[in-house]
Amino acid sequence: MHNVVQSDLKSGGLVGRVETVAVVAVSHHGRLRVPSFASNVFRIAARELRESARSRWFLLYTAAFVALGLGVSYVSAASSGGSGLSGFGRTTAGLINLVILVVPLMALSAGAGSIASDRERGMLAYMLAQPITRLELLLGKFTGLAAVLLTSICLGFGVCAAILAWKGSRTDPVALASLVGLTFLLAMSMLGTGLMISVATRKSSVAMGVAIFSWLTLVFVSDLGLMAGAVALRMRIENLFALSLVNPMQVFKMWALVSSDTSLDVLGPAGLYATDIWGAGVTWIFACVMVLWIILPLTVAASIFSRRSPI
């Protein structure tokens, strides 16, 4: 039935017998069956998912995310004494902060680690020797890692929601649900960026370094620069708002505020400006920026990946 190829692979210190099936299979009628794009992507994704779910980084980050989410929700529910005074407040603000800190780090390092380390171990050349295209491989990796991230996000927020329900906090479940969705979008955008870093670097250590540097830039350095710029250059608020839209973390934050029924006027003059000029349409701007942040890095990654040698 199946055309089984066995081979020994010796590369990068890893010695193993790799059983594989060529994705080209012969059907019952003896005709050549070429697997579809989708099924190839799915197979790579399933493999990536399984690999990652066993790996240490996944366990570590998930544990950290769950623990911090538990802490944030417990402390915020306890501080309002279950008195129903919280509403949007400490809980959501704390969760937004937590997500901005932890989730991009998870996603960037997962993305950056994946292809670069495969290349280092020689796995990449091996996998590309199979009848799959590079785009299929890349999308498979993306899908698998996105599923992994979805798992840890759901675990973290699931525990959070359990704590909030138990403590009788008045945090709106719909707002929390939309926060989960937005977190996943942010994770995908950072995962794409991570993959872009990964295909552009040769060593996984370099990829990881660049990923952490990017994280630092997006989370702290760019905001600090923008703050300094706003003060030093007496930046107009419309420019300040437009510039802040470049950063997916800021977009995530503002979108999360809007989706939890908090008016952007919390964010001072720039927020008031956004509410006045764009009204409810500001959500569409956020959506466009997020989608761009998911598509653009992936496109760049695909174009780099298609031109580079797998070794």
């Binding site: 902060n97 989370v219 703050m227 608020i237 505020l257 001072g268 720039a270």
Partner: peptide, 9 residues
């Protein structure tokens, strides 16, 4: 205008 950076890390 720096209030724009509230709730950020």
């Amino acid at each position: 205008s720096l209030r724009l950076f509230m709730f950020s890390p």
